[in-house]
Every structure is written in C-alpha cells, then in structure tokens.
C-alpha cells in the first residue's frame, strides 16, 4: 500500500495534478472561511446585543450543521448548478456555526465589571466593542475560526462531488479505480493541510494574545 502511494506521489504528472488540486482546495476552503468570518463575527456581536434572539438564531445555524454534507451539496446543485459556487456555498454554511458560537461566547464572557468600568469612564459602545470586548474575545473567536478551518479543509474534499475541484478529485478517481494508493494520495495531503492550518492558526492565537490573557 505504501508503495502504491509512493508511486502516485513520485509520478511527475500526478505531482502536478496534486499541486493544482491542493491549490484549489486551499483557495476553496480559505474563501469559505473568510466569507463565514465576514458574516458570523458581526452576527455574533449583534446577537450579544439582542440576547433574546441569540438562542433561536444559533439553534437555526446548529440545525444547518446537522444536514449531511453530501445532502447539502446535492441540494446546492439546483440552486447554483455545478462547479465551485455550490461547493463554496455549502462550505460557507458549515463554517458559520463554530465562528458564530465562539464570537458570541467570547464577547459574552467579558467580565461585566470591566464593561461597567469602561462605560463609567466614558467609552462609547463602539469604543467598548473595539477597544475592550473584541480584543478580550479575540482569542476565543480565533479558536472558533480555527475549528471551522480544520473542519472545512476536511469537508472541502466533498466539493469534488459537485465539480468544485480540490483534492477530493484524486480521492474520487481512487474510488472509481478501486485504488487505495490513489485514495490515500489524495487523502494524505488533505490531512496535512488540515494539520498545517491548525498549527498556523494556533500560533496566530498565541501571537495576538497579550501575556496577561494567556491561560
């Protein structure tokens, strides 16, 4: 089996294909996560100001999470056709929840005493958000983004089912040819990408956390 995998990795043509697919994979995952951050972070912040909406909204997004991924992807085809767009849309929806949840909890967990001090000192709500709440919640928000990213890199494999490209293509052709070597040749880079993303985002979390907030 190892020999089969090595055979794929050492084939110059396959190398090029894998590199190309990895690039697609990264681009697809990254786009989904970036879009999810752009939506989920502001939404999470907004929910901390509308607490009675927080649970219903988050329950709805939680429900989305439970739809089987293949089903969600298939569901996107009538809406967005095949190709990159339906894959991106599905991945985006999956990426939302961990970021939304972590933003909401991160901001909620900021000590009330700190907020009262800030308000009492004459900070506007905007200043309170950007100078106090966001910096303190940043680490928690980043950990949500990290969870989403790792998740999405894995799920982006399924993009191949709707013609969305990425390393899933290699895995799919592995299935088609009943070639475990080929399946692994697609799967291993996905795993490595996920681990790499996890590591890099973990580093980022530490870098942006002042030493006083580190556990």
């Amino acid at each position: 089996m190892i020999r089969q995998v090595l055979a794929v990795f050492l084939d110059p043509r396959m190398q090029r294909t894998l590199l190309l697919q990895a690039a697609e994979h990264i681009s697809l995952s990254l786009s989904a996560v970036v879009l999810a951050v752009l939506v989920a972070v502001p939404l999470g912040v907004w929910l901390t100001r509308r607490e009675q909406l927080a649970e219903p909204v988050m329950a709805t997004f939680g429900l989305l999470q439970t739809i089987p991924s293949v089903a969600l992807l298939a569901f996107m085809i009538p809406l967005l056709g095949i190709g990159r767009e339906p894959a991106l849309a599905a991945l985006f929806l999956y990426a939302l929840m961990p970021i939304l949840r972590s933003t909401y909890t991160g901001i909620k967990q900021v000590d009330d005493a700190i907020l009262e001090a800030g308000r009492g000192m004459g900070m506007t709500s905007r200043q309170l958000l950007f100078l106090v709440e966001m910096p303190i919640a940043l680490r928690v928000i980043l950990s949500g983004i990290r969870v989403s990213t790792v998740l999405i890199i894995g799920w982006a494999t399924l993009a191949a089912f709707v013609g969305g490209g990425g390393l899933g293509n290699t895995i799919m052709s592995g299935f088609a040819m009943v070639s475990p070597g080929q399946i692994l040749a697609g799967g291993i880079p996905v795993t490595l990408l996920a681990l790499l993303a996890d590591y890099l985002l973990g580093r980022l979390e530490r870098v942006v956390t002042p030493r006083s907030l580190r556990a």
Binding site: I114, E116, A117, G118, V132, P135, I136, P210, S212
Partner: peptide
C-alpha cells in the same frame, strides 16, 4: 469594587 482594569 471589582476594580475593572482592562486585562488586555
């Protein structure tokens, strides 16, 4: 009472 210094 809780001091409320900004931890960051």
């Amino acid at each position: 009472q809780q001091i409320g210094l900004f931890p960051h």
